[in-house]
């Protein structure tokens, strides 16, 4: 489904500030894989997401989606394949537009946008059904401006917008990190349900160790631009936070340092 081969990415190459963000990443996601990603600050998790989405181009290496080489494809074209939810609840929606207008834009993911009406009656019914899945009453507020919603509601809407057109790959970039615990819990539950029901191939970056262990069928750990550990479904079932941290220290030679880390 998704294959990364020998990806390198440098920031400020050739200057005193040179930093190796990714150093030879190899990763393969099979259809239906739900992979959680953890790692220290500056391990390259966000860069990895940006390379996959097309927001950044790698200095070396290839990105393949469905065996098609998309390395040089710009982000807006690659979005045919990729749904993405950002950490910032404000990032995934247009605040001065209504809920139904936001959904209409997401509905046209990767298609040409012409002079047809964006919100038709048929689409509106479909949006209402989809919003009802979230279970937070947004289906009754189709014409409300998104800017009026709370952070949690906006993130739930972002999640729906990223997923309801069944993208080949779903990227979740610490999408619960900016929310209070109750909201984060809601979004985590919704994520779990949506990914399971639609069998989405998913890559999720998180700071929450417990979440990283509980969700998904695979877990990868990153450090200094490398994938240092890839835990398969069998081993993942018996994983605990202590063992995970221990394993990290053993391989990387230092403690997992992340100022936002949540153990569970």
């Amino acid at each position: 489904m998704l294959r990364l081969t020998n990806i390198y990415k440098l920031f400020n190459p050739g200057t005193v500030d040179e930093k190796t963000a990714l150093a030879g990443i190899n990763l393969q996601l099979n259809p239906g894989d739900f992979v959680t990603v953890i790692g220290s600050n500056g391990a390259g998790k966000s860069t990895l997401m940006n390379i996959i989405s097309g927001a950044m181009r790698p200095d070396m290496g290839d990105v393949l989606i469905d065996n098609q080489n998309v390395t040089q494809m710009p982000e807006f074209k690659r979005s045919i394949f990729i749904g993405r939810v950002f950490q910032d609840p404000m990032a995934g929606t247009a605040p001065r537009m209504t809920i139904e207008e936001n959904l209409a834009m997401a509905y046209k993911r990767g298609q040409g946008r012409g002079l047809r009406l964006g919100v038709t009656r048929r689409r509106r019914e479909m949006f209402r059904e989809q919003l009802a899945r979230l279970g937070i009453g947004l289906e009754n507020r189709l014409r409300a401006k998104v800017g009026l919603l709370s952070g949690g509601e906006r993130q739930a809407l972002s999640l729906l917008m990223a997923t309801f057109t069944n993208p080949r790959i779903l990227l979740l970039d610490e999408h619960t990190a900016a929310l209070d615990p109750a909201r984060a819990d809601l979004i985590t539950r919704l994520t779990e349900t949506i990914v399971r029901e639609q069998r989405l191939t998913t890559l999720m970056v998180t700071h929450n160790m417990e979440q990283a262990i509980r969700l998904g069928n695979r877990l990868i750990m990153m450090d200094k631009g490398r994938i240092i550990l890839d835990i398969d479904p069998d081993k993942k079932k018996s994983l605990t936070v202590e063992r995970l941290l221990g394993e990290f220290e053993q391989i990387s030679g230092h403690k997992l340092s992340d100022d936002r880390i949540v153990l569970g």
């Binding site: 989405s53 995934g92 964006g118």
Partner: peptide, 23 residues
């Protein structure tokens, strides 16, 4: 209110978002 018009409005409202949806 057309698909193109919505994309135009979103460009001024949240360009990153509409870019991630392929406009």
């Amino acid at each position: 209110k057309t698909d193109l018009g919505l994309a135009l409005r979103a460009t001024g409202d949240n360009a990153k978002m509409i870019g991630s949806f392929g406009a």
